[in-house]
Design a protein around this nucleic acid. Sequence first.
RNA 1: GGCCUCGUAGCUCAAUUGGCAGAGCAGUUGACUCUUAAUCAAUUGGUUGUAGGUUCGAGUCCUACCGGGGUCACCA
Length: 511
Amino acid sequence: MSWQPTNIEQERLEKARRLQAQGVTLYPPRVQRTHTCAQALSALEQAEAQGQPAPSVTVAGRIRRTNLKGKLSFMHIEDESGRIQLFLRVNDMDEATYELVKDRLIDNDDFVQASGQLMRTKAGEISVAVRDFRLLAKSLSPLPVIKQQVRDDGTVIEYGEFSDTETRYRQRYADLAVNRGVREVFIKRARILRAIRDFLDGEGMLEVETPILQPLYGGAAARPFTTYHNQLKQDLYLRISFELYLKRLLVGGLDAVYEIGRDFRNEGVSWKHNPEFTMLEFYKAYTDYYGVMDITERMVSQVCQQVNGTTQIRYGEHLIDLSPPWRRVTMRQAICEHTGIDYMDYLDAASLRQAIINHMPHLSEKPKPDESWGRLVVEFLFGEGVEPHLIQPIFIMDYPREVSPFAKRVEGDDFHVERFEFYIAKMEMGNAFTELNDPLDQAQRFEEMARLYKKGDNDETPIDEDYLRAMRYGMPPNGGFGMGIDRLVMLLTDQHSIRDVLLFPHLRDQK
RNA sequence: GGCCUCGUAGCUCAAUUGGCAGAGCAGUUGACUCUUAAUCAAUUGGUUGUAGGUUCGAGUCCUACCGGGGUCACCA
C-alpha cells in the first residue's frame, strides 16, 4: 500500500520543503565524523586527566532528544556507540543555522553532524559546544517516543515505551532504533556465533558450506519447502538438515567438519519454532557420542563464559549452571525416575499404551491406539513425563531405535541407539549420535522409515541412494551433533520467544 | 487447523449497565542563554483492525473475515 502521510509526517514534509528552500541539502553524500559518541566522551575524560585542553571533535548521529530554550538549546545525538549531548548557543554559531534548530526545522530522529570543542555543562555532562551543525538525513516519519532518565548509578529509566509486539517485529528497524535492549540482544547474538566458530576452529574442525537447494531432502523428520528450477525443469527442496551432506564429507577424508546455516521446515510456528532457523551441525571422525558430549558441554559453557563472563545464567525464574560436567542419564532411567514406568516391561505398543494411561492420569490427551512403541516412549513418557522437569543442563542418552534412523545401535541391545539430546531450561537444545556408518544397516533403516511413513498419511520419504553409495565406499566411525542456534541465543540472552532473537521473524502477510 | 484472548490518536493507555471518543508523551504556536523525563501557556490530531447485523443509539452486544499473542494438535 502506498504511503498515506499522517499529520506529523505532513508537517515534516513541509519542513523538508522549507529546508530545501533555504538551500539545505536534505541528504548530503558526505560526512566528516572524527569521533563516535563514545570516543568523544572518553577523549574529553582523557584530556582532563592529563591536564590538556579540551579537544575539538565532529560527531554524527540521530537526534534523540531536543530541549530548545530560546537562545541556548540542547540535543542528545546517538550513534551505535552511545549518546553525547550537543550544546548549541546562538552566540557560538551561524545565526541562520541556529534558527533552523530554534524553528524546529530540525526534528528528533534526524541525523546530524556537529563540530566543536568538547566541554562540560554546569551539571557536569560532557557536551559538544557546537560551532558547525549540519543535517545529514531528514527523518520524515516519527519514531516511537521513549524518554530516558539516566540515574547517577548508570541505570536507565525509560518513560514511554514501544512495546506492541506485532509492530516491533514488522518494523524491526524502529524497534532497534528506540529499544536499546533489543539492539543488545542482536549484538550478543553475533558474539555468540563468533564464539562458537572460535571454539570449533580451535577443535580443529573445518567450516564448510553445503547445498541449501537440494534435489532430495533428509536427515530429519520434517516437511520441506519445495521450489522449482525453471531452466533445469527440476523440483528442488530447501534443506531440513545438513546431516547427509556433511557425512559425505567424512567419506571424502575431511575428518571434522561443521556448518552453521539456515534450515527450513514447513511446519507450525511457535515460541520456539520459526520456518527458517539457524542450525549448527558438526561431524567428527574417530569419536562417538561420548566424545560429542565432552565437546558439547565444553562448547556451551565456553561460549557462555565468553559472551556473558560467567557460566551461571538466569533464564526467567531459573538459575542455571552451565559449567561441566553435565548430568548424563539414559532415557530409560530418566523415565523411571519421573514416571515410575520402566518401558522395558512393556515391549509392545498396546501394553505400553495401557501402562501410560494407568500411570499418567494427568495427561491432557490419551495416546491414540495407533501410536508406535517408539513414539509412546519419546512423545508421551519422555515428552510429557520428563521434559518439563529438565532445568539444569542434562544429556538424555539412548533413544529407541525406531525414532533414530541415523544412529548406531547400543551394543547387545536391540531397542536402543547411541543418541543423546541435551536439555536446558526445559528446551531441547540439540541432538547427537554415534553415527551409523554401516551402509547395509542404513539401507534397512531407510526402508523401515519409508514403511512407517506410509502408514501415516505423510508424503513420500525419499531414500537417498547417493548417500548410501557414499557410505559403501567406507565412512569412518564418527560422532555427529546438531543444535538450534536460536534456542542457544534465547538461553544466553534470557529471551523467551524465538522471535525475539530473530531480526526479522516470519509473520503472516498483512492485508 | 481447533480453542482462548487482544486490536481505540505517531507511541503508551482510559472510556461505568450500550448514552457527546479522552489523557500523558510527541507534534504545532508562544516564552526562556546550563537543560537533561526541562518547565510554563495555548493548541492540532480519530472511518475505535475490516465488513455486516441487533438497537432510538455500538469502542462496548452478535456473526464473519484480517492481524498479533497464548494454548492444543502437528513437528521421529
